[in-house]
């Protein structure tokens, strides 16, 4: 699993984080939110924050990101091809701004991710976001990753080279 998702959650440190930590943890949070499904975001948002006042600073928008690769894997960059991306920016009554951006074409999902990002930045809301939104997504991703790794491991192969006989 990628390095960004692998970062531990910021819950334990809430309130004591310096700016560097906060932006690292927010990066990790955004990475998790980008992988959330409709249910994983919609259900907790509706349950805990049913009457949230949300202003759309940037209405959900579908667009393209040109995905780059590197020659030989680690050399100079080249343009591989594009991917669809949806992004949204919201502002809560508190003035906190949330960014949502993810692969695919789902405006509702991007907006919900932005809302969750804005809520997460509020130290008072963060534990709930962590517990009911981020933790379940993280757990699902970990399960899927473990399953993939286990299935892949079962196809590990040992090749033997055979010496050709002398007639």
């Amino acid at each position: 699993m990628s390095s960004v998702i692998g970062l531990s959650s910021g819950v334990g440190k809430a309130g004591h984080m310096d700016e560097q930590d906060l932006s690292q943890d927010r990066r990790a949070t955004l990475a998790i939110l980008a992988r959330g499904t409709e249910t994983e975001l919609a259900a907790p948002l509706a349950r805990h924050w049913p009457d949230l006042a949300v202003r759309d600073l940037k209405r959900p928008e579908i667009g393209l990101v040109m995905v780059r690769g590197r020659m030989g894997g680690d050399g100079a960059a080249f343009n591989l091809g594009e991917a669809t991306v949806t992004r949204a920016v919201v502002e809560l009554a508190s003035g906190r701004r949330g960014h949502g951006q993810m692969l695919g074409r789902n405006p509702r999902l991007a907006r919900m991710a932005a809302i969750a990002d804005a809520l997460w930045q509020d130290a008072a809301e963060r534990p709930l976001v962590e517990r009911d939104i981020l933790a379940p997504i993280r757990a699902r991703l970990a399960r899927a990753s473990a399953q993939t790794r286990a299935e892949t491991a079962a196809t590990r192969v040992d090749f033997f080279t055979l010496v050709r006989g002398e007639g």
Partner: peptide, 19 residues
């Protein structure tokens, strides 16, 4: 569709390898 930008180059060394 509008283009939002360019990705960071993919890091294939960090791939979750399936094959």
């Amino acid at each position: 569709l509008p283009r939002f930008g360019f990705s960071e180059p993919l890091d294939t060394a960090a791939m979750q390898v399936r094959r």
